[in-house]
């Protein structure tokens, strides 16, 4: 088994996701958070973007509480023709933040109507979106501590 998070489109309003976390990763996380893995709380965070390059577009997200024993989810009532990806993370229980541990591929939900008028240019999604992880947002540059980062630590 490897650490993995997968997102699959089912129809224009439904996604399926599953995730797997290796035992050694659970142990490592437990050490970092100084807690047994089974005592941590977890969340899923679903992101939606209108732009295929999710790093650029406006992102919306929703958090979903899950049970510890959960390892897959069907998510319904979604908006078609949008781009989605999902995180599995540890609920930090402060300011609704999650510590992302796994991130899925990006999928697009199928359109539920003809969107394109005949003759209008049709677009092909870039390959990096369809397969590889696109360039995620670099939160480092927007981090509250970024200006104080010396390259080794944070200055006073």
């Amino acid at each position: 088994m490897s650490n993995r998070m997968v997102l699959m489109p089912r129809d224009s309003a439904c996604l399926f996701t599953y995730w797997e976390v290796e035992e050694k990763t659970k142990k490592w996380m437990g050490q970092y958070f100084q807690s047994n893995w089974n005592e941590l709380d977890f969340k899923l965070r679903l992101y939606k973007s209108e732009d295929a390059n999710v790093a650029n577009g406006k992102l919306q997200h929703w958090d979903m509480n899950i049970q510890k024993e959960d390892d897959h989810f069907f998510i319904f009532n979604l908006v078609p023709d949008q781009f989605y990806y999902i995180d599995f993370g540890i609920d930090k229980c402060t300011d609704e933040k999650i510590f992302t541990l796994l991130r899925s591929n990006v999928v697009t939900l199928p359109s539920n109507s003809i969107r394109r008028r005949k003759g209008a240019p049709a677009k092909a999604y870039p390959s990096n979106v369809l397969y590889k992880q696109p360039i995620w947002r670099d939160y480092r540059r927007n981090a509250s501590w970024f200006r104080k980062f010396t390259g080794y630590n944070l200055t006073k």
Binding site: Y32, H61, G89, R137, Y139, A143, S144
Partner: peptide, 23 residues
């Protein structure tokens, strides 16, 4: 790239970078 989704503490960002490097 660390899989960040929120503005975390610096040390958490470092740990997430390390997770990405380890993977």
């Amino acid at each position: 790239l660390p899989l960040q989704s929120d503005d975390h503490e610096f040390i958490d960002w470092v740990f997430q970078l390390n997770i990405a490097m380890y993977d």
